[in-house]
Design a protein around this nucleic acid. Structure first.
Lengths: 273, 273
DNA sequence: TTTCTTGTATTATTATATAATATATGTTGT
DNA sequence: ACAACATATATTATATAATAATACAAGAAA
């Protein structure tokens, strides 16, 4: 696999056009993120960073020091532990402020959120994952479900199924090939063929429903935002929670709302349709 | 100024513990951000990046290529222009998911948002700026006012004045010394002494009001989140818009709401108080 | 077409990142 | 309180890996 990449290929992950030190800097930031996930702690020691980023102590020392100076890491003077720095938000802001899709969708999503009193989200595909880019929280929304930048697997999220329903077969298979099919909750569907069936259904229906696939108690409904050629470029999604809501109620109330919202956003984003 | 830094000081912006290539990588990302601000465009050419990041063509080439491979920049194959990549959101997520303050505040902010039907925000200080870390949008909220990571000057924002009201005099002067006092709107107060007077008033009152200081038509009210020693660590803020709202209405309705919200968040974040 | 601007690829050079080591600081257990 | 240990910080010689000059290619403009 790696041998297929000519190490002299300038445009690759090696060669003179690739600056490995930049990658290592981000490896440290990802190590801090891993510590949050795996160790459940928000501050990390130097040795932990070295281990999680697979660097020696000296390298971890140089890169943490650099990132602290740039504001992307903060260092507790007393404990000497590192945590994510506020400056990181500026980077995400750069993506969001340039997203015309977010801009168009936000106002409509706020309005939709008021109709049935639910949270409303917008997400795009990134590799095998769905990434949330706009979130309108509502009362009783779990904290995790309010965070921009959060990612969940395409194959389990309603938004992922809905988007794949609006994608070519090649794209579906490409995406599934990159998916690991690890269960997220105890109800997660991990059989690729069942997932393909769900995608086919979503293609026919124009929406998808996931019952407790990503979070316990959560019933998630999503519909694709389509471009001028009818291909999915994003999905709008509404989450409601058991036992306040049942699947029947979702079908009766949320489905019409989310499909209408998706249609409106699509039409505004691509006025020529 | 630069001479004061011993170039052999290992913990500084030069020396063996500082990896300059990491900084240059971020310089490119900042150049893209500058292009958004100054050129008003979301995609940037290689030569523009070189100019905005103050690098030669070769350097810009190497760092853009690296960042594209890492997913932090996207490159349009046809136009050969660069724009921010989705992967940037993961970095901001890392900060947000670890913020206990955000977690505690979010639920209360959603509830407060429903009371008078307004947007509610949470922000922290970063240098001379206020950075928004939680935003609950509401109907008619301008897109800019929904974005996490957005920064506005401390000296003009109600949240900034409120936080400085809950800070030591040294900290106030430090912050003002780093401020440029450039007007944001045509009504922005740029006289440092008037700003000091506003901070003193906020200290006495426990809240601050900014009338069209950061955005036209926007009346912004903020109160500080205080730690166990009574020092400000954040601020909650509510924005309403003229002409639907007047200053009198804000004083009557929003002020009690925002001070109560700040008190609740403070008390939950520091239960010992 | 020609000319100019912008993007891509290659190369020799040495500056800059590296990792081994030494020292300092803090933490744990008896 | 003192060892014994773990972890963080500082220093240095070395060579790797980043650099920038340049050549080439591809679009855009005239």
């Amino acid at each position: 696999m790696a041998e297929l990449l000519d190490s002299r290929d300038s445009g690759s992950r090696s060669g003179t056009l690739y600056v490995a030190s930049v990658e290592k800097g981000f490896r440290v930031l990802r190590a801090v993120r891993r510590a949050q996930r795996e160790l459940g702690r928000n501050d990390v020691s130097l040795t932990e960073i070295a281990r999680l980023s697979d660097m020696d102590k000296s390298a971890a020392q140089r890169f943490t020091n650099t990132l602290v100076h740039l504001g992307y890491l903060e260092k507790d003077a007393r404990t000497r532990r590192y945590r994510p720095g506020v400056e990181l938000l500026e980077l995400g802001y750069s993506y969001l402020v340039g997203s015309r899709l977010s801009e168009i969708a936000t106002a409509r999503m706020v309005a939709a959120s008021n109709v049935y009193g639910t949270a409303v989200n917008l997400c795009v595909q990134h590799g095998p994952n769905v990434v949330y880019i706009v979130r309108i929280p509502h009362e009783n929304t779990p904290f995790r479900a309010t965070l921009i930048g959060r990612r969940v697997p395409m194959f389990s999220a309603a938004a992922g199924i809905a988007m794949l329903g609006g994608s070519s077969d090649e794209h579906v298979e490409e995406t599934l090939a990159r998916s690991d099919f690890k269960p997220v909750t105890e109800w997660t569907i991990t059989d690729p063929d069942v997932v393909r069936a769900r995608i086919a259904a979503a293609r026919a229906d124009g929406y998808a429903i996931s019952d407790q696939q990503s979070l316990p108690h959560e019933i998630s409904t999503a519909a694709p935002v389509l471009d001028a050629e009818g291909k999915a470029i994003a999905a709008v999604q509404i989450a409601v929670y058991r036992p306040s809501w049942t699947l029947d109620e979702v079908n009766a109330k949320i489905v019409p709302l989310i499909t209408e919202l998706a249609r409106t956003v699509s039409g505004t984003y691509f006025p020529e349709r």
